[in-house]
Design a protein around this nucleic acid. Sequence first.
RNA 1: CGGGGUGUGGCGCAGUUGGCUAGCGCGCACGCUUCGGGAGCGUGAGGUCCCGGGUUCGAGUCCCGGCACCCCGACCA
Length: 484
Amino acid sequence: MSVSTPKPERIPSREENFSEWYIETVRKADLADYTVVKGCMVIKPYGFGLWENMRDALDRRIKETGHENAYFPLLVPESLLLKEAEHVEGFAPECAWVTQGGGSELEERLAIRPTSEAIICSIYANWVNSYRDLPILINQWANVMRWEKRTRLFLRTAEFLWQEGHTVHRTEEEAQEETLKMLEVYREFLETELAIPAVAGEKTASERFAGALRTYTVEALMQDGWALQAGTSHNLGQHFSKGFGIKFLDEDNVEKFAWQTSWGVSTRLVGGIIMTHGDDRGLRLPPRVAPVQAVIVPIYKAGIEGELKEKCARIAKALREKGVRVREDMRENQRPGFKFTEWEVKGVPVRIEVGPKDLKNGTACLVRRDTGEKAFLPDAEAVERVAELMVDIQTNMLETARSFREEKTSRPANWEEFQATLEEKRGLLSCPWDGTEETEEAIKGATKATIRCIPFEGSEVEAGEVDIYSGKPAVARVLYARAY
RNA sequence: CGGGGUGUGGCGCAGUUGGCUAGCGCGCACGCUUCGGGAGCGUGAGGUCCCGGGUUCGAGUCCCGGCACCCCGACCA
């Protein structure tokens, strides 16, 4: 046979087919799988372990900023959903409905929550009477359902897991402060834990949450040059308090409507991690959230198995004592090369090889997933080094992602350049905007690029600057991109 | 919801103008030899050929109807 058959189960490169690379990476890394229900995935233990670490890191921050967790019902009576006009309009098209219970037709159909504003606000209305009842600072971890036409593992599934904060405040200022505070929590969380640099800013009216006064976002840039909305924080104003009757008697004995916020991030972020950090070998996980931070692979040799196992156990124990999440891959039916590949696909930050040479020399071989760098170190040093690598790798991944984003951020000088840049380079395009929805629409129609946000930093326009498309006077510099 | 494509062991596929007991690779199970970058040999298990109807002596293959999934567009975290 002169024909060399390609190895089966290879993941296509990001270059040749990014979307296929993504799906294959998710599946080969054993994060998730399809199920019998369209658009509903099963998050497998490895993927869920990742989500749990993300969740815990964010949950800690949510609590540190004074919020408590609670849980509200899955089902939302239609009448409640109808109470905020813009809100229904936005979500009705993607609602799934329960129409029967116990074998008989329900008098009123129940929506499976696409988000919980309606149900939570209806309950808050009973909880709020006095200004002394405020603020209410509650978060819930839950599943929600949106009937999507087209789904993709993690990025857009019919059912997904998320966190949604719902707060009620006495004043507009306080609500606005809360909205921005939580957006900053998201931005910092993405950067610190997930090593994803994100641009914080405000959404334009057309991208605003259904029923919100203002929507803020943290936008990340994926390796294919598309933007991903990684988290949103909404100032709901009094839209919902008026719709649901959340009123309180203020200090001045005047009845007033409360001011509200809501904010959320979802399992979509798992997709963000994959598309920000993955390479052609598969996943690369930021150490801080990786379910397995270091994997130990023994290189078996006849006669020394016992010694090898002992040494592996010793290293594992020392690492655990240092707080490193270690996995010992002691399987005897798989060869080392197979294991190397497998753990690389799964994105484990550090691999520790322990073989006959190491037994003789009192060393261990460390291999970094992010750089591929390989080093034999004396045992004690190796353990120290792994702990250091957790920090180094995390930092390196953030820096890599940051410089990628900077490289992919452009300032086209005119409309022709805008189109060319979007086609050839993609990424984020910083351009003056005239502030109209017409322009936004026109650009979207022509290029599929949307305004991702009006960034907090760098949105100032100089006198005389004009809109990249319409030529009219610009009101702000905004970021355009094609987005997931 | 429009346009295109595909449905055959767990996965990837082959299956001729309709013909014999439906094959191949990977994976899986067992055994032996191996193990510093996806191991080799041997033995073995595993199938409503998407579903329903029709044509025929005979259908994985042809015809009609349905369903599902994937890709490309419009809508969305």
